[in-house]
Design a binder for these strands. Sequence first.
DNA 1: TCTGGGGTCCTAGGACCC
DNA 2: TCTGGGGTCCTAGGACCC
Length: 420
Amino acid sequence: MALFAHLDCNNFFASCERVFNPSIIGVPVVVLSNNDGCAIARSQEAKDLGIKMGEPFFKFKDLIEKHNISVFSANFELYGDMSNRVMTIASQYSPEVEIYSIDECFLNLEGITDNPRDYCLEIKRKIEKCTKIPVSIGVGPTKSLAKTSTRVAKKFQNKTQGVYVIDSEEKRIKALKWLKINDVWGIGRQYSKRLLSNNVNTAYDFTCLEEKWVKDNFTTTSLKLMRDMKGIPSIELESIKDKQSISVTRTFESRKEDIEDIRERVSTFACKCAERLRKQKSLCTRIQVFIITDYFRQDLSQYSNTINVKLPYPTNSSIDISKFATMGLKNIYRQGYRYKKAGVIVMDFVPESSHQLTLFENRNPKHTVLMKSVDKMNAHYSQDLIRLACQSPGKTWKMNQEHISQRYTTNINEIIRVKA
DNA sequence: TCTGGGGTCCTAGGACCC
DNA sequence: TCTGGGGTCCTAGGACCC
């Protein structure tokens, strides 16, 4: 019998901040998105105050002082490193692990234990001891049921001690009847609206639908999900795959009109894309560039556009990608608008190794060597030491990060200090 | 004044071919 | 006036996830 565990860190980003700052344990904590735009993580206390996921910062600013909320700018370097630690420990408990997101993973427990509850309590204990990150674990015969179990484990923490196992038909039905349709993995806003209007209120109702109806009204993915929740394993554990696209997009700290300012941003985004491409040893053959004005300001004139640039040859050179992205930008830029956001997305990859030189190759082989040394130096010294000339340092933009914590675990200068 | 970022998958519909 | 059918490939857009 198939057996999956799903592990989820509790309020992950907020918990990361608490690891290095025990004074905020027990008080509400909110972590903000880039530019301190909106809430992307909340501790339980902050959730209880009614602060919603994605809520703009300015809308709950008045609550901050009133309830003594600790606010942090997102510190992804710290979270990424803490995530690695959690995942490394989890991986010791199963030969087959899928890292699903920064704070979640699935473990294949088939044939590993006769007592999944105790086994997972041990995993939880170990992770919490070594990393101080609290986790919840759910177990079930399929991935979606394991994920459902995790929700139960979280919701009824006192009863479950943070671990719940669906190991009988009664438990499966009980959990699915409890799970609201809009909380089901794979059922989003649009789908739940349609399902609710058809009197499908819970996950259980969903599993009772006719397969044909689900397939006709939704997609094959939803059908798979439905079978999976019935207990028929239909969603497989996935191994680590190369990315199919890499994107760097940012909201500007202010609105920009001048193409020169935007070009500098786009060039920097392009270089970041190229760097990540090189990291996974891929070359891209298509670049997408987009710009958009501030759609929250309907009083201003709006414009947005996207362009696809097909490259004459596959590349992961920052110089090439920046050049083609800039060309794309020039095509879609229109004067007289105040732009709020731009982005570069690289796609249609080929592996670096299998790339064959084409007859009309005009890729500059020197770039490969150059980029290698750029990456090396940037890794060795501080990040982004080496830039292209067009990323003029004077113009390089700085994010609003008023409340950022230190990179305790990845930067020696920001390591935690202990008073003796 | 102030509203994130990075991904994946699926489908409908157009272009094109025989 | 009548105006095939079937197949493939590609892409934009929309849904979903964290």
